[in-house]
Write a protein that binds this DNA or RNA. Structure first.
Lengths: 199, 199
DNA sequence: ACCTGAACACCGTTCAAGT
DNA sequence: ACCTGAACACCGTTCAAGT
């Protein structure tokens, strides 16, 4: 019943995660060093081993945390908008805001090299994308999808947003045109604001 | 006038690049070690320094090589197809073939951390995407774009393809549905095969 | 259970020296 | 010009030992 008895930090696992997130945010996953993280929070380099057996496990945990944060943002964006077409634009904007603000973390999340906890990462990713799926299923229920598969449309929108964020983050797409590009990308989904009606 | 006099390998730079590409292809950029590459081709670890001052410069050179290869594939796909709408599908398929077959290399190419040679990487990327731009400009010239900007459409298609490849490579999108997803994604561009006519 | 401290093999980078 | 060999600081991982 006693809350996790503090030794040095109350919760070493969370302290490691927080510091690691900060390093990834500033310098990228490639620069993440277990020894540096341990030193920064004042423990020896072998202490975090009880919580993260190796570097890969820490990276996986960071990916899960990233997907959880992303999922919250997408959920908020969906809930804050009224109906089907508006929600597509809202969730798309929220996605690009997160993916450009947390470029290094998102790059880590989508790195296709995950360890034994790969399933956990995959599950957290699916959970994060659930709001996006919900929007298209709502659109289908309202007969706005012209017979197209809501799951496939959601996957393609997701790909477009993730790809757009990647192009912006690596400098191929101009950052100051993100808004216009999102508008143009979103407009190409059935009955979104300014889609085929613009012809 | 004498061709680059061979010392140990005829061309150490190319030998390093070839070995490095092989390592990245098999194990990913994170596992790339300059010392291991040097040992594999039979020189000491400091020998490649004349060609690649540091690890970052080698990674940049690998990215340039990757974009060059990608550009060749896209160019071939465009040239092998007859007109505007068919070429979109051809270039999209070629892109996903390359990006899924060379997952590790593509991940390196789009990593947003490049060194002092960042401009060179950017220029090679632009050159690789030129065939894609050409297709949409051709479509515009034929009046098939409904007034939309060919450059923006090209960027959005590129984002969708790159995002799709990333989702497939990290396991979010099922690999056996790539064909269907490409069809669906491409169908949403003006006058592509099976686009709005399918309604 | 949680953490320390020493050890091992590996890495990127630097540099004086060879041919 | 091109390459060697030694050195330095750093890293991930392992493990016996402490409390």
């Amino acid at each position: 019943m006693t809350p996790a008895r503090p030794y040095h930090h109350g919760n070493l696992r969370q302290a490691v995660l927080d510091e690691a997130v900060a390093v990834v945010r500033e310098r990228g996953a490639a620069e993440l060093s277990l020894r540096e993280v341990a030193a920064a929070i004042g423990v020896t380099h072998a202490a975090p081993r009880r919580h993260f057996p190796g570097r890969q496990e820490l990276l996986d945990a960071l990916a899960v945390e990233g997907f959880t944060r992303l999922g919250v943002r997408l959920r908020e964006a969906v809930d804050a908008s009224p109906g089907y077409p508006a929600r597509i634009h809202a969730v798309a904007t929220a996605y690009l805001d997160f993916a450009t603000a947390e470029a290094n973390l998102v790059e880590l999340m989508f790195a296709h090299k995950h360890g034994a906890d790969g399933e956990a990462v995959g599950r957290s990713a699916e959970a994060a994308f659930a709001p996006l799926l919900q929007v298209f299923r709502q659109g289908e229920a309202e007969g706005l999808l012209a017979g197209r598969s809501p799951d496939r449309l959601a996957l393609i929108l997701l790909a477009t947003l993730q790809g757009l964020a990647g192009l912006v983050n690596c400098g191929v797409a101009p950052a100051d045109q993100v808004g216009v590009l999102v508008d143009e990308a979103v407009a190409r989904f059935p009955h979104a604001a300014g889609s085929s009606a613009a012809r």
